[in-house]
Structure formats: C-alpha cells, structure tokens
Design a protein around this nucleic acid. Structure first.
Lengths: 238, 238
DNA sequence: CAGTGGTCTAGACCACCCA
DNA sequence: GGGTGGTCTAGACCACTGG
C-alpha cells in the first residue's frame, strides 16, 4: 500500500519502476523524456529530474546527454566473482578462461530444486564449467537451470559463451533482471580438490549465485568453488 | 589541479571536503547551514543542496531536519565482520562477546611494521582478543597499533571495550577516519585451530583491516580469523 | 535545427527542532 | 518564532546528439 502523502518525486520513481517491473520497459530501453514525464504526471521537470537522479544513483537507469535516459541492465561485472585473481586485490586484467565440462539433464539436490521451485523429481539442466588462469585450474562452477528456459540446450549443438546471460537474453528472450550472491568458505571435497589440483580439504571459497528474471522468478542456481588462495575481496569503510 | 569549468556544485563539495580533510571539521560537527554556505560561496541554495545531497549519498555527511547537516563518522557496522553469525546471512541480533587475551609490546612481523611505516625493530602494541557466541569460540583477532597513539595502554590498567575505536577517539583524541578491509580464506594453523576448537587445517576466513587517521596515517593493522562455517556474506547485483 | 539531459537560480511553502 | 532542512515550481542558459 502506498502512503498518502508520499513526495511527488517518489511517485515518479514508482511510476518508472512499475513500467520496468511490468515489462513495459526492458533493460536498454529509452524511457520518456523529462518534459514528457513532467507533462504526463503533471509535475515540474525539476521533480522528474530528482526522481531520475535517485534511480540513476541506484543504478536502475542511466543517462546520455543529448540522447535520453535508459533502463539499466544487470552488470555481472559487479559479481564477487571478479575478486578471483592472482592474489592481487585488483582483479584487473586477469584472464580466466572457461571450459564446459558437462552439459546434461539431471535430478538436482533437493535444496536446489526447491530454490528454483521445482518438484524434487524433475530433471534440471546441469552445466559444469571450469575456469583456468594460464592452464592452472582455479575454479569449478555448477550451474542449474530450469530446462524450459533454455530448450534444446542440452543437445550440445549450441555454443556456450563465457558469459551465458547475454545468450539467455538474446537467443531465448528471457530477461535477466537481478542476482544475489552469497560468499562463504569451506574445505574442498575430494572431487573438487582433484579438479582444482589441490590437496583434499584445502580451503576453498564458495560463491552461490541466484539469478532472477521477471516477477522474481529464479532461473539459475549456481555455485562457484574456487581456490581460496586466488581470492581476495577488498572494501572500504567510512 | 582543479578544472576550470568545474560545475559550481562540485566546487561546493570540494569546499566542504577540504574543511573535513584539513581537520577544521571533524566527525560529528555541524557544518554551516545551506543559506550560510550559499552566501559564503555566492551560489544559490539549490546548488548547495545538490552538493550536500551528493555528499550525503556518499555518506560523508548526514542531515537532520530542523537541526542541520553533520559530518559523518566512520561506521564499523559496515565492516565485513558483521557477516560472522550463526550461519544466517542476516547478522542480526547475534551477540559476539569478546575477551582480551593478550596485551603487550612486541616486535611485529615485518610486513606489518612496514604497513604501519615503522622500523622493523621497533616494538608495537599488540592486542589479541577472542570472540565467542555463547561460550563457543568463533574468532580470534590480532591487533597491532602504533604505541605512541595509545600511550600507557600496555600497562593493562585501562578497560578495553568491545569497540576500541570510540576509546581511541575520546580518551586519546585520535580521530578515526576510514578503514580498508580485505577478505580471504585460508586453513587454520595449529595455534588458531586450538583457539577456535576446530581441527587443524580447517577452513577459516581471514579479514584484514587497516585503519586510518588524519592524513592517511595508518594507526592499526588488524587480522581477524574466524571459523569459515560461521561466515557468509550476501550481496545483490543489478 | 529541435530535442535531450546538465547546471543554476529565485522563491514558495512545508515539517521539524529548539529556545 | 526563527532557523533548519525537505519538497516543488518555473524558467534560464548550456552542452551534447542526431537528423
């Protein structure tokens, strides 16, 4: 329920967000111009500006002077994944090459089926990939997708690019809206240790990602397990 | 060098930030009011508002309607430390009790002396503390301070509170301005494993914190080592 | 050139805080 | 009541984009 005396600029924000959430506006779209919005909603352009300012700060929109204001798309460059590197905190210039190791339909662990709101018996699309820095294995990735999102992908006749999400959007028309990541550490089980060429029970970093499409529908459950000695996450406190 | 045609609001931001960086304004201080700043700098109040808006977004300032605008102080609640918990991502309501185990003057490992720009032979103030959740050890903390910052603290006659930084500011008059944290994972050495009551080489999360005072002077080098199974960091991507 | 966002102003009215 | 920040307006001028 929206408040009665919500500030006008908040209403403008909601108006724009509703258009995004309902799919009338998809990532990359040009939104109505400031004067247009001001007219439509019967507020001043300054108020529209303030609303858009806020959404730009939240990275929901971005502006191009002389062109207009656009709906942002999700930026996986903000993934915690980028803190895997040579042990440097920078994460700059490091090339991690990925290879697909497995691609099949499988019954998933129940907590994963549940997270994707699938019956535990239904098969899901499973993709395993491994990441290397100059031939050295550094991480292993387990991805679980709802199969109806990516029909036919398990046939293996489709090239799977490093960044799958662009393909999901372009080839399959499924918008990728947001994602949540959780970071923990653990010790490597035998399978993982073997894949990463480390001793069993060596420390590893576990990065779980839940990816969402429209209407908060989760479309992917991903776990990335990486060598702990190749991970460092830096942040500033004020 | 500042640009020639820098927008006015950027100049106002710089004006305020200079007062903070130079120490004329310290955390908690009330800054000049919007009309005052507008007069002093010969710009309109709207421009001052925009400048302050930006600094508030960056958490450098905060406002209180009817009172004024204040300089923010560092908020250690934003530390990655808060993601140590019962395995829940929330970090809410979890009480970690800390005890001081050691307090002495010691020669530090060279990389720490170096970080604090101290000659490697000089003794530093070392504090070791341990954190518990209901009697269960969950983390161990190694803190290294420049001894002249906290004279006499090693005598042990001063009570060390959970959050040391308030004491540093109030009792010793040293402003605590910012901090950097780096997160990695490792396996526990024997000493740590014993302290945390876990098996040797169990995975642990290592959180390094560098704390800075005025003029980017580093005043503390801290390493917090915690049980990996009690840590999880969650973030959202858009 | 017309249309977009970017900056800046001047002033109105409101809500909050404190003496 | 006087001062603070919070919202909102109307309008000016500029810088960038594309046809």
């Amino acid at each position: 329920m929206s408040q009665q005396h919500l500030p006008l600029y908040k209403r403008v924000e909601q108006h724009i967000l509703e258009k995004i959430d309902s799919g009338q506006l998809v990532p990359g779209d040009l939104i109505a111009s400031e004067p247009q919005l001001a007219n439509q909603l019967d507020v001043s352009q300054g108020t529209v500006k303030k609303a858009i300012d806020n959404l730009v700060n939240e990275k929901r929109l971005f502006r191009h002077q002389g062109k207009g204001t656009y709906v942002s798309s999700i930026d996986f460059n903000n993934s915690l994944f980028r803190f895997f590197s040579y042990g440097d905190a920078s994460g700059q210039g490091v090339r991690i090459h990925k290879e697909t190791v497995e691609l099949s339909l499988k019954v998933a662990p129940t907590h994963i089926s549940k997270a994707l709101s699938y019956p535990p018996e239904r098969e899901l699309l499973y993709i395993q990939r491994r990441g290397y820095i100059e031939e050295q294995p550094i991480l292993i990735e387990h991805c679980w997708w709802c199969p109806e999102i990516l029909p036919g992908l398990e046939k293996g006749d489709v090239h799977i690019p490093d960044l799958m999400y662009a393909m999901v959007v372009e080839k399959y028309g499924v918008p990728v809206i947001s994602a949540e990541e959780t970071l923990t550490a653990d010790s490597a089980d035998d399978y993982t240790a073997d894949a990463l060429e480390i001793d069993a029970s060596s420390p590893v970093v576990v990065l779980t990602r839940n990816t969402f499409s429209r209407n908060d529908k989760m479309i992917e459950y991903r776990t990335t397990i990486g060598r702990a000695d190749k991970f460092s996450y830096k942040t500033k406190i004020r």
